[in-house]
Design a protein around this nucleic acid. Sequence first.
DNA 1: ACCTGAACACCGTTCAAGT
DNA 2: ACCTGAACACCGTTCAAGT
Lengths: 210, 210
Amino acid sequence: MSREGVIAAALSLFHEEGLAKVTMRRVAAVLDTGPASLYVYISDTEDLHAEILDALLADVAEPSSPADWRGRLKGTLRGYIAVLFEHPELARMAMSTMPSGANYLALVEKILALLKEGGVPDGQAAWAVDLLLLFATAQAAEKAAWKASARSPSNFSALAAIIETADVETLPNIVRHGTDLLSGRGDRLDWGFDVLINGVLKTRRMETKS
Amino acid sequence: MSREGVIAAALSLFHEEGLAKVTMRRVAAVLDTGPASLYVYISDTEDLHAEILDALLADVAEPSSPADWRGRLKGTLRGYIAVLFEHPELARMAMSTMPSGANYLALVEKILALLKEGGVPDGQAAWAVDLLLLFATAQAAEKAAWKASARSPSNFSALAAIIETADVETLPNIVRHGTDLLSGRGDRLDWGFDVLINGVLKTRRMETKS
DNA sequence: ACCTGAACACCGTTCAAGT
DNA sequence: ACCTGAACACCGTTCAAGT
């Protein structure tokens, strides 16, 4: 056995049954041994899950159209988000695990290069990568919640119902916007990227007013 | 017994032992019964945890200084983030649960009002609340990961080590920025808020170029 | 209706003992 | 050093049976 062997077993389990089934006990079972044996190579369950994410990040597609830096940046982010959208459970995990695998680093490198090309000053660029990737990951994690509540639509329609019937006295703005608060799932993502990029170009580090 | 009773028991367990201990079995034990009894009032564990978050959101502080709308908006967001920072496990949960409690709605209402005051057009405002709260929540969830890796500092210093020793050929921009990629935890949050606010003011819906 | 004992089907992690 | 059986200490959820 080896770390790679354990990860390979975890990965196949992941593809066949999803992240929820990638448990120490099940991976051990695939390898015909007891769970204790894995601890020689893997420090804990989180370690295992982080490896799965990094393996998947190898598939982040190169943005196809040779557009300007902004277009390629958005394309790269869409590639990253596409991977997480297919496996929303991993987005949740990435939210609280600080990825540090080789493929994640390559992604950070690419984004830094694009920001540099776009003339974003170094000080801002370092923080901007974090902001962009945080947004992309969070958006994927949120979509995971949507998927879950689509399976049992109670949550979403319950929320819509609450908004529709909200008290005009205490929540006037919520009533005014109505279900627009829940709309535009597709364009919204793209709008978010633009907000971030425009904001990064406009906002200097240290220029923290109020 | 009642839903409120169950939630009250869960809340006290949460304050004494943290979210990880708020399990069906333990809450039931507090109420001197078996876990099955809770299912009359609570649909599942997630339901229970969501109630805890909304209860905490009652404490989101009013921004103290009567500043301009931007200052009050940032103050409100800081108030929200402060609650999540104290209980980072809840930030992770909020990331994938679509809060819909009364206190969360009140927070959305307040932010909508401030954006309106700031002259943000309605179409943008509806999406902007989502973006601002997503960012705040994600930031708190990420801080949760930091806390965890501070307990076992291996993750963070390992990441720092990886960055320091990264290959200049393949990862030139990462090497150039070095540990600046991991710096400025405090100012960074405020910079992020400004990026978002500036971006929202600059970016119209539908103006999705490239 | 509301409540519950008991069971089903699982978990992660540790540790003493073996090879 | 590497590996493992067995145990410890838990989980969520369901369901038949009771009140």
